[in-house]
């Protein structure tokens, strides 16, 4: 009897699991793989065949199948199952692109290289791409670092002190909205090196949103929070760092997100125009010499590293703002 109910429970639990959804990714990848193996390459293309795309599909197929099977038997992995449709659809789209390019050559091969060619660049050029990426990351780190520090400082000054607000706010309001890319020509001639110019431009791009959101965050902190601090013996200066800034943190993070996006945009533009290194420069250079596979490879690198950066930023925010749980729904 006891045993029976446990058994029934287990059965229903397994039945509850979404088998179809879990395996969707694997099936989609398998379909792409079959298409890749069964359909011959278009004979317009004279490039030699590369194994990378096939390998990618095989590896993806193995991983997704293991995950789905694990889920069916042991549960857990909800996040993978939830994403399964998306993963499958992404591979189907890639498979379709593969058909259009490699298999039937329906669109201009020079502008639209096949997946295997793009992957090939990622592998062959990995070292150089990494160097470019590090160079860009360094620029971004300097620029964003300076932008965050100066943005916080300006935001606190104009949000807290009315005298600073009087003098600085008009300046912020007039310089801020100008896209920092518009300053590229000036910056390139004003600074000794293009590296410095780029750091300046990136800092400028992130400074504005961080300033504005820090200020509005501080202005919107509940007045009673300051009054309580007063009756607890806080000095003016203590009220800034114990009340105003923590209270403004949710806004400050929005500012940092906007600032990061602005900084990234500026970085890419700066690299495409004047800076002689970095991932943006790489893309532009490859475009000029018409190697579009390299352009796409560069884009892949940018997409992956940028979303990684944003993901890390989200994690930091979630940790710093953990006290907001239950107050605000993200």
């Amino acid at each position: 009897m006891e045993k029976d109910s446990v058994y029934i429970k287990k059965i229903t639990r397994i039945k509850d699991r979404q088998i179809g959804r879990a395996y969707f990714a694997s099936i989609a990848i398998a379909i792409s793989l079959v298409a890749q193996l069964a359909i011959p390459k278009s004979d317009i293309l004279i490039t030699k065949s590369l194994p990378w795309y096939t390998w990618l599909l095989i590896i993806a197929l193995i991983i997704t199948t293991i995950l789905a099977t694990y889920y069916i038997f042991f549960g857990g992995l909800e996040k993978f199952v939830f994403k399964s449709y998306f993963i499958g659809a992404a591979f189907l789209a890639l498979g379709l692109y593969n058909l259009v390019t490699l298999k039937f050559a329906l669109i201009k091969p020079i502008f639209f290289p096949a997946p295997e060619t793009i992957i090939n660049v990622l592998i062959v050029d990995a070292g150089f791409l990494l160097k470019c990426l590090l160079h860009s990351a360094l620029l971004l780190a300097y620029g964003l670092g300076i932008g965050i520090i100066t943005g916080l400082a300006t935001g606190i000054l104009i949000g807290w002190y009315s005298s600073w607000n009087y003098w600085l706010e008009p300046l912020v309001k007039s310089i801020g909205p100008i896209p920092s890319t518009a300053f590229i020509p000036i910056a390139l001639s004003a600074f000794a090196t293009s590296f410095q110019a780029a750091v300046f431009l990136i800092a400028l791009a992130s400074w504005f949103p961080i300033t504005v959101l820090t200020q509005s965050g501080i202005v919107n902190v509940k007045k009673t929070f300051f009054e309580v601090a007063d009756t607890l013996g806080a000095t003016d200066f203590q009220k800034i760092f114990h009340v105003a800034v923590p209270g403004a943190l949710p806004n400050i993070f929005v500012g940092i997100f906007n600032g990061t996006c602005g900084a990234f945009l500026t970085l890419m533009s700066a690299e495409m125009i004047g800076v002689r290194y970095g991932i943006g420069w790489y893309i532009n250079w490859q475009r000029e010499i018409m190697s579009y596979a390299n352009v796409y490879a560069g884009l892949v690198v940018i997409a992956v590293s940028f979303s990684l950066m944003i993901a890390i930023l989200f994690k930091i925010r979630d940790y710093v703002l953990r006290w907001q749980k239950g107050i605000i729904k993200w």
Binding site: T224, T231, G233, P246, G247, L249, Q324
Partner: peptide, 19 residues
């Protein structure tokens, strides 16, 4: 001026949510 010698408790507890 306000002082820690005169404590005040409001109707709303006004605890600092980040502490």
């Amino acid at each position: 001026r306000p002082s820690r010698e005169r404590g005040l408790v409001f109707q709303d507890p006004t605890l600092y949510p980040w502490l």
